[in-house]
Amino acid sequence: MSTINNIKAVAEGITATMKKWDNVIIYGEDVGYEGGVFRATQGIQKEFGEERCFDAPISEALFAGMAIGMAMNGVRPIVEIQFQGLGWASLQNILGHVGRMRNRTRGKYFLPMVIRMPMGGGIRSLELHSEAMEVIYAHLPGVKVVCPSTPYDTKGLICAAVESNDPVIILEPTKLYRAFKQEVPDEFYTVPIGEGYKISEGSDITVVTYGAQTVDCQKAVEMLKVENPGVGVDLIDLRSIKPWDKKMVFESVKKTGRLVVVHEAVKSFSISSEIIASVQEECFEYLKAPLARCTGYDVVIPFDSGEKYFHINPYRVLEQMKKTLGFKF
């Protein structure tokens, strides 16, 4: 076991898969010699050589297109797009080919490829460096989307993604890269894609979140305990956005009768919209309060000086939980 942060967990996950399979490679802008803008791949080129870890030109469309061809021909590529907001050029290939290949070829070809994207705010970055657009990728049939929040889950989900025979997009919250450390096994292991994790148990309200907001929600739950020690919160970290753990969420809402979904992405047409619609369909007769969400606002992500007014914080989550708990029909 090693005690590491999220950025080190990324490196260990990539390294573990490259040791396990000789056909795993990784590339992207500055990924080789420099080790990436966040140094997630530092030392990997030295260990595995330039043929398996290399720099790519500034062309995100090329990154995704190359990976498609590689994956169809026996390679398991890991593509790093430097920031989620800089990856729009890759969407043509992701939308048009990545999720469609198995269906298009009637199962003859599949795409065991991974696309990694640092995402989200909280590090005072420039425009297009703080985007949270996970809903675009989650909307695509044939593509899996994960968003880990802890070092253990980060390494395990990277290993599971590379092992998968279907394309997986890994969204890595930049805010959490060096936020805290956790004990992580040294060997290869996987965290199942599609399974959530229950951070805390309770019977009064369900809070569902993922990515960087797991930390905000945990703080909000602790604040609620101070104000009202008798309230119990089922706090769920989805870990996997698509597929998401419907069973865990539905069972929790049927128990508590209340739901708050938390994420930093804008509110309209979001992941929370999908979760709330699904819960409404499956758990309506169990509800004790309107289904609620605490999200980013429907605006362009602000520049660094204004991001504190946009992003989720524990106080916003706390207020929404109290509002939902206090609702009376």
Rank of each mutant, 00 (worst) to 15 (best):
V261G: 07
F269V: 13
E264L: 01
K254I: 07
L259W: 13
P290D: 06
V260A: 01
S270A: 11
R258N: 10
G257D: 10
V266R: 11
A292D: 12
F284L: 12
I276K: 04
I276D: 03
R258I: 07
K288W: 00
K288R: 11
V266P: 11
I271W: 12
K267E: 14
Y286G: 00
H263Y: 07
Q280H: 10
V260L: 08
I271S: 05
T256N: 09
C283F: 12
V266Y: 10
K255R: 15
S273L: 01
A265E: 15
A292T: 05
P290V: 04
E285R: 08
I275G: 02
T256G: 04
S270G: 13
L291N: 02
I275H: 10
I275M: 02
K267C: 07
A265I: 02
L291D: 02
K267I: 03
F269E: 12
S268N: 13
S270R: 09
I276R: 10
E281S: 05
I275D: 02
I276Y: 09
Q280R: 04
S268T: 15
C283P: 09
V279L: 05
L259C: 09
V262F: 03
S270D: 11
K255T: 11
L287T: 01
H263I: 08
F284V: 05
C283D: 08
V260N: 04
V261S: 09
T256L: 01
S272N: 10
C283L: 03
K255F: 11
L291R: 04
A289V: 08
A289R: 04
K267T: 14
V262K: 04
S268W: 14
K254T: 05
R258G: 06
A289H: 10
S272H: 09
A292M: 03
A289E: 05
C283E: 08
K288E: 13
H263K: 07
L291M: 04
K267M: 09
E282R: 09
T256K: 02
S278E: 15
E285I: 03
F284E: 03
R258L: 06
S270C: 08
V261F: 15
G257L: 06
I276F: 12
V266A: 11
Q280L: 04
A277S: 15
K288D: 09
V279K: 03
I271L: 12
A289P: 07
L259A: 04
E285Q: 08
V266Q: 11
A292Y: 05
L291F: 14
E274N: 07
V262E: 08
K255W: 13
E285G: 01
I271Y: 12
E282P: 00
